[in-house]
Amino acid sequence: MSEMLHAQNVSKSFTLHTQGSVTIPVFNDIEFSLSAGDCIALTGESGSGKSTFMRMLYANYTCSNGSINVRHDGGWLDITTASPHAILDMRKRTMGYVSQFLRVIPRVPTLEIVAEPLVALGTSRADATAKARGLLTRLRIPERLWQLSPLTFSGGEQQRVNIARGFIADYPVMLLDEPTASLDVDNRATVLALIEEAKSRGAAIAGIFHDHETRDAVCTGSFDVTSFKVGAND
């Protein structure tokens, strides 16, 4: 299958200037590749840097060294050196990210928040809203909540709004940070189905999954970030 993302010689360290300028090395020389149809689980114990690595793949965190190339707009874009404009365009059209946090302007209705990524891609508001309704229904968010801001929702409901927003545009590359955490059995099954659908349309997916069942059900492979931890092979 065609390669969609390639990380090469990627290193990361944090320098904490407010705490005596201590430097915390995290990763050394990561090699990682993701192809269309893949669903790779990022593994490693809690605190090993799975989410850090995922944020680097989204260009939310910088890399200290190395390159991360993403297939975007018919070419390769190295997001470690790309301009902010290019990264925003890559996120708009190529890469979706379901994070564990919902960051939205208070007061904006849930339906609008979910439809927004499609509207940004040029889909008509009516079509985008129709698709948003479908996803919210599948994820069992009651219709009476759709016109309210999700900031008033429970943790599990916010998580599902995040998932709906992340899956509404058919991104070629998707990053999923614990998409099934805090979901009940039925909703977890829906999320697994959404992941399967994304895989079968050829999306390249990297995910962090807290439970074996989810991992075993949808993943085509795994990637242990601990083997690239600084000092891992000492």
Binding site: F14, T15, H17, T18, S21, R55, A59, N60, Y61, T62, P84, I87, L88
Partner: peptide
């Protein structure tokens, strides 16, 4: 300077 979420989530300058 840079991408807003990068500057706020992974700030480089002291």
């Amino acid at each position: 300077s840079g991408l807003t979420d990068q500057v706020l989530d992974d700030p480089q300058h002291a």
